[in-house]
Design a binder for these strands. Structure first.
Length: 641
RNA sequence: GCCGGCGUAACUCAGUUGGCAGAGUAGCUGAUUCGUAAUCAGCAAGUCAGCAGUUCGAUUCUGCUCGUCGGCUCCA
């Protein structure tokens, strides 16, 4: 091969560099500057990510991926997974590697080896650091299938993977004495990994199949900068402090008991917040033209057979026998909603019909899946079923999206939208799917917010829009969902009379906004870290008489404030004022009112807010007016008096 | 359900290499009646998750069960 042929490299700024021999990515980067080259991780040529060590043999447009680019972190972490695998292999020579992908917050590697625990981490991390210090280079090698199979002859998992590769190059990466099957690309050398940490272990099955071998999954994360790792660990610490399971106990909101695993108990204060959440929900839904309905918790097996749940959702359903008839406790509200619809007869003029239901559902989740309020076996959905004509799809979906926006904004939660389209296994005709999916798309476009498309991720009965909220720590949670259902109206033979005096099949939407109220509650606890906005917090004001003689007057004040809808408590414990203030403060009571003789004589209040500021001599009006206004406006900011 | 960790007072946690179980907070009693982030003293509180086994003796070791945590998995 002629090695002296010149190559023209076009850079993103359209400048062209000519090389007299085939340059590697590193060489091109160095020709720009040494400093730049140091920050380069990989390069992109025609949408393909390549190693910097790759030699370029024809004229190309090259874009360098530097440590600042989004893709860079994935490449680094993928390389970090190899380093971790090398370390494990060094310490446990019998370990058989399987796969090691990058995930959202880091990477993992599934390894067939003896169970290990976090106690083994320090040794592995030490080994990892040795490898990083050695600045081992990643070398790519292309091999034939036979060569690959021979290299991994002792590893059945890798052999399985290799045998699945058809019509594609089989590449291996070697760093130090360690070789792994890998598509690449990788960072130039292990020294680029500046912050790496093993996070946790767990069991995982080969190919996520319970009947296959149980592997050890080792999770880790890695960054280009030690500071980024510290920031990440700090975030995890913050999240731990906000853990709604701990805060729920501390703030006396809810608890969990062995006697009903996965079914939360709400305390008086938790229930107070719950009611405020629903009050707000009802207000918004009434404005949006919804009616509220309620269906039973337990319904006959026949209904579930008709709806298809008996066939498809049976293992998650609680059942019971009553008078020799089998019943199921509802895991979803829709079949009951179907019966409600069928009690009436509808004309096209009655549609859309928007029927909300705060429905208590039970689902038998696997014991290992339970987690605080986030994953429970009994929960309430803020469900609604909208029945409509096909040409109302767009406007109804748009209406739901606008409602979603209003409600989430009220909590200061951002969100993004994802559209899921027809899956392989589905019911309904092509025309129906097209009409439904276009309806969702048009509504999304009208709504005007960017959205992600998940091809083939829809339910088998219709396309859907999932709404993912983003909390104060930047974590995302799927809460709301809007699903079109083309199956249930069919199964229940729903109809309405059209303008043509013919029977037509209505289209149906299932939608939730809070999703699971329990889960949303937990998310709010973590989002606000227990320090709720005034309108939401269970106890808005605590009144502290400075001595026992003032207790009756404190109760008078409390009664007066309660008349204005301000939720108060009087703290008459025989504790020092300082102590009472401290307790109110650590429980994030937004308004701390002290009552002394001065206040009684002048009929004023002195109010301490959570920022530690104290406003003295406020008349009742000067206090009540802004507080009531703040509550009514559902303000998110701390109140300033 | 599976893999691994954990389960000690209402809460947060210490402890026992197998020999009568410990602290702080909360609670109760008494004193203190206090002006903006913890007044003092005393008391009470636990079959050490449950059941079985090993042992002279088990909260400690073993097995099973339940709960819980991190994952896996599932999410019509």
């Amino acid at each position: 091969m002629d090695n002296r042929a010149s190559v023209n490299i076009t850079l993103p700024d359209n400048s062209i560099k000519t090389f007299e021999s085939f340059p590697t990515g590193v060489e091109i980067a160095r020709s720009i500057s040494e400093g730049f080259a140091k920050n380069c991780v990989a390069m992109e040529i025609g949408e393909k990510l390549l190693d910097l060590t790759k030699q370029i043999k024809e004229d190309s447009a090259v874009k360098f991926i530097t440590t600042k680019d989004k893709e860079a972190l994935s490449i680094l972490r993928h390389s970090a997974a190899h380093v971790m695998a090398e370390a494990v292999q060094n310490l446990y020579p019998d370990a058989a590697l399987t796969i090691g992908p990058v995930v959202e917050d880091g990477f993992y590697y599934d390894i067939d080896m003896k169970p290990i625990s976090e106690e083994d981490f320090p040794a592995i991390e030490e080994e990892i650091n040795k490898i990083i210090k050695a600045k081992q280079t990643f070398e790519r090698k292309v091999v034939t299938k036979d060569e690959a199979l021979n290299i991994f002859k002792d590893n059945p998992y890798k052999k399985e993977l290799i045998n699945e590769l058809v019509d594609q190059e089989i590449s291996l990466y070697q760093q130090g004495g360690f070789i792994d099957l890998c598509r690449g690309p990788h960072i130039p050398n292990t020294g680029m990994i500046k912050g790496i940490k093993l996070m946790k272990t767990s069991g995982a099955y080969w190919r996520a199949d319970q009947s296959k071998a149980q592997l050890q999954r080792l999770y880790g994360t890695a960054f280009f900068d030690k500071k980024d790792l510290s920031a990440y660990l700090y975030l995890i610490e913050e999240a731990k402090k906000r853990d709604h399971r701990k805060l729920g106990t501390k703030l006396d909101l809810y608890s969990f008991h062995q006697e009903a695993a996965g079914m939360p108990f709400f305390h008086a204060k938790g229930m107070q917040m719950w009611n405020v959440l629903l009050e707000y929900w009802r207000e918004e839904h009434k404005k949006a033209g919804y009616v509220e309905t309620k269906t039973p918790v337990m319904l006959s097996r026949h209904l579930w057979e008709q709806s298809g749940h008996w066939e498809n959702y049976r293992e998650n359903m609680y059942t019971s026998v009553v008078d020799n008839e089998e019943y199921a406790i509802k895991p979803m509200n829709c079949p009951g909603g179907m019966l409600l619809y069928k009690t009436g007869s509808y004309s096209y003029r009655d549609l859309p019909l928007r029927a909300g239901e705060i429905g208590l559902v039970h689902r038998h989740e696997m014991s290992g899946a339970l987690s605080g309020l986030f994953r429970v076996r009994a929960f309430h959905q803020d469900d609604a079923h909208i029945f409509m004509t096909p040409d109302q799809i767009e406007s109804e979906i748009l209406g739901v999206l606008q409602l979603v926006n209003r409600i989430y904004s009220c909590f200061g939660l951002g969100f993004h939208l994802e559209l899921s389209t027809r899956p392989k296994k589905s019911i309904g005709s092509d025309a129906q799917w097209e009409e439904a999916t276009n309806g969702l798309k048009n509504a999304l476009n009208k709504y005007g917010k960017d959205y992600v498309i998940n091809e083939g991720d829809g339910a088998f009965y219709g396309p859907k829009i999932d709404i993912h909220i983003k909390d104060a720590l930047g974590r995302t949670w799927q809460c709301g969902t809007v699903q079109l259902d083309m199956a249930l109206p069919e199964r229940f033979d729903l109809s309405y009379k059209g303008a043509d005096n013919e029977k037509h099949r209505p289209i149906m939407i299932h939608r939730v906004i809070y999703g699971s109220i329990e889960r949303f509650f937990g998310i709010l606890v973590e989002h606000f870290a227990g320090r709720f906005p005034l309108w939401l917090t269970p106890v808005q004001a605590v009144i502290l008489p400075i001595n026992d003689d003032l207790a009756p007057y404190a109760h008078d004040v409390s009664a007066k404030l309660s008349d204005y809808g301000i939720r108060c408590e009087v703290d008459t414990r025989t504790e020092s004022l300082k102590k009472k203030i401290r307790d109110a403060q650590v429980n994030y009571t937004p308004l701390i009112i002290t009552i002394g003789d001065k206040e009684r004589e002048s009929a004023t209040l002195s109010v301490r807010t959570l920022d530690g500021n104290v406003k003295m001599g406020l008349t009742m009006e000067q206090f009540i007016d802004p507080v009531v206004k703040h509550i009514k406006g559902r303000g998110l900011e701390d109140i300033v008096l």
